[in-house]
Write a protein that binds this DNA or RNA. Structure first.
Lengths: 350, 350
DNA sequence: CCTTTGGCTGAAAACGATTACTTGGGAGTA
DNA sequence: TACTCCCAAGTAATCGTTTTCAGCCAAAGG
């Protein structure tokens, strides 16, 4: 039998538009074989006569056949695609994670689709739903908050690895030692002689930045100093808030610990506008070693996270999880390192 | 009729693993209606008795039914998903474009999946193939080079909008006035009194950066000056190359025009290491107004592109293209603006 | 009281691949 | 020669939806 007549013959000078796509039956007809043989040839499964295989490959080539992955995924009940859901493509930490995930994924034969939630709960919900309904092979998620609802993924039995921020739902989890990093940073500031370091952090439902705040407060308490903390929303110039509160108070801070690199950038710009010299009048240390950290004025001290390696680790866990969905959930905490540049050193006033 | 027996009853205390997913037939059986009625209810198409609709929604909720989008896409012959293929997630220009595309897409009811090709031809090929086979509703592509092969998309009749870099294949195209931007920047450098500005650009098959080089050379020629050009590969520290060539020559340049923000960063770091004072010994101006540009030492002059707006425009064109695949291809060139800070001003030596 | 109309409902046919199962022919053995 | 056995190729079931189409029932009109 040949393909059902669609009033159109493949390759016979089809019009500029509206010509139907070529399907496997068209290839089969053109090669004079059955669809099964075409499928087996193109997928390299089962034995097929070299002569027929040649005819099939010729026909496929000639007609410009492009298998419909949607149909294939339906039949195979699975894809070779992961979704990586992050909260901010502008944050170099997450893009570094993304590259790690991507590199490791392609070694295992998966493609990675990146979804940017922009710290917006409704966008995150939407992407989680898309991932669940499109039945991706797995998801790497940096959740907006620990209450992010992953029931869609769970309901669709989609393997999940959480990265950076903890989730209340149990799952494989890759993170960095945020608390310890903040402890290092705060102790460093005090050692340098700063007297009133403050912590500029993100909303309290962001797990990782809370760890950093807690690390800061822990050190302050041990030194008998009153903690100074401000929570700054995403998507605003953090400096405005800080200037109106901390720097308008009778006793302003003399140093700042920021929990991510965008906040650090806001502080550098703001302090400059206010005429405060960083490293002399005010100490500053941030999280994440962005590419620009060494060249700002003055070079920025940071607590660095192994972002790329975290991505690789997350991808490895996801591969394992796909192979064995029943294994117990693992948590991987990678260590942070402090990179001291000039912004946190206490220089003598000129 | 009820669902074919799979040896498992939905909601009847299924085991921890391996329990099949809930399908539409399961919902239909539980609600005592046909699958057609379930589909109509859940999609809000056609009239359905409120009582039955209630039973359906109850059953769907109770069983945790999650429609299989793969099957739906197959039947509907289409998705609500776009692919956005960019060459570098670490480049703030592209992430700004991505946010523009994303915002506009979601206004039109599409979800955007981001693919990062890392300036790697094989990765780009892979993602184009995935997009073509997965039959996404449309693609926004920032091509690696003008020879990027989009025949897969064309063959699968997938609407395409090209952004930033031109493609030899005809398609809707959104770009910025690179040539004019480079002309502005070069004339500005000469006006400030720099005598030997050089151009640090990317490989010659990158359309946009070539435009910038040409703009630079055009000005140099008009001023009767010999052009100084170096092409720097992606993924390397651009400075090494520049130091070993331009700055090892008998007559080194006294100013640099870089064609993207990562190159500018490399130059700032490198010139510092070499002990050259930017704005005094050497002038510097880059492309793209990255968030860090105002806070490096000294603040970086740039030619800014309206990246976010370019993304929005690309998304608009794609929506139009999807509605009318036959319309003539459009090209949109958005203007660039020069932001002069200190790095390009010629300060008197201290 | 019968017929027409209109609106819901359900049965079944797509969608386009993969793959289990069937079939037929050739080779090998008794 | 006849009977197995094996292997490649083809037939048809399947994946889980959406959507066409036919049928049924109730209401309305003649």
């Amino acid at each position: 039998m040949s393909a059902p007549d669609r009033g159109w013959t493949p390759g016979a000078g089809a019009g500029p538009t509206g010509a139907p796509l070529v399907r496997i039956v068209d290839v089969a007809a053109a090669a004079g074989v059955s669809v099964a043989t075409v499928s087996r040839t193109l997928n390299g499964k089962g034995r097929v006569d070299p002569v027929l295989a040649g005819r099939v490959r010729d026909a496929a080539e000639r007609l410009g056949y492009r298998p419909n992955a949607v149909a294939r995924n339906l039949r195979r009940r699975g894809t070779q695609v992961w979704a990586l859901i992050i909260t901010d493509v502008n944050n170099p930490f997450y893009t570094a994670v993304a590259r790690g995930v991507e590199d490791q994924a392609s070694r295992s034969g998966y493609s990675v689709l990146l979804c940017n939630t922009d710290e917006d709960q409704s966008k995150e919900d939407r992407y989680l739903e898309v991932a669940a309904q499109e039945r991706v092979a797995g998801v790497v998620l940096a959740p907006r908050s620990s209450d992010t609802d992953v029931s869609g993924l769970v309901g669709s039995r989609i393997p999940l690895v959480v990265v950076d921020r903890e989730l209340s739902h149990p799952a494989d989890f890759v993170t960095a030692a945020s608390f310890e990093g903040a402890v290092m940073a705060t102790e460093h500031l005090l050692r340098e002689g700063w007297r009133r370091p403050a912590c500029v952090t993100r909303p309290a439902d962001t797990a990782t930045t809370e760890q950093r705040r807690l690390g800061y407060e822990d050190v302050m308490r041990r030194h008998g100093l009153p903690p100074l903390v401000r929570h700054v929303p995403f998507h605003v110039d953090g400096w405005t808030e800080i200037q109106n509160t901390l720097f308008s108070a009778p006793e302003p801070p003399d140093a700042l610990l920021t929990v991510d690199s965008m906040l650090a950038l806001d502080m550098v710009a703001g302090l400059k506008r206010l005429g405060r010299r960083i490293g002399t009048d005010v100490g500053l240390i941030g999280f994440d070693d962005a590419a620009w950290a060494p060249v700002v004025d003055p070079p920025l001290s940071v607590v660095a996270q192994p972002a790329y390696e975290m991505g690789v680790a997350a991808a490895r866990l996801l591969t394992k999880r796909i192979q064995d969905p029943t294994a117990a959930a693992e948590t991987l905490t990678m260590s942070t390192t402090m990179i001291v540049r000039e912004s946190s050193r206490r220089a003598a006033p000129a």
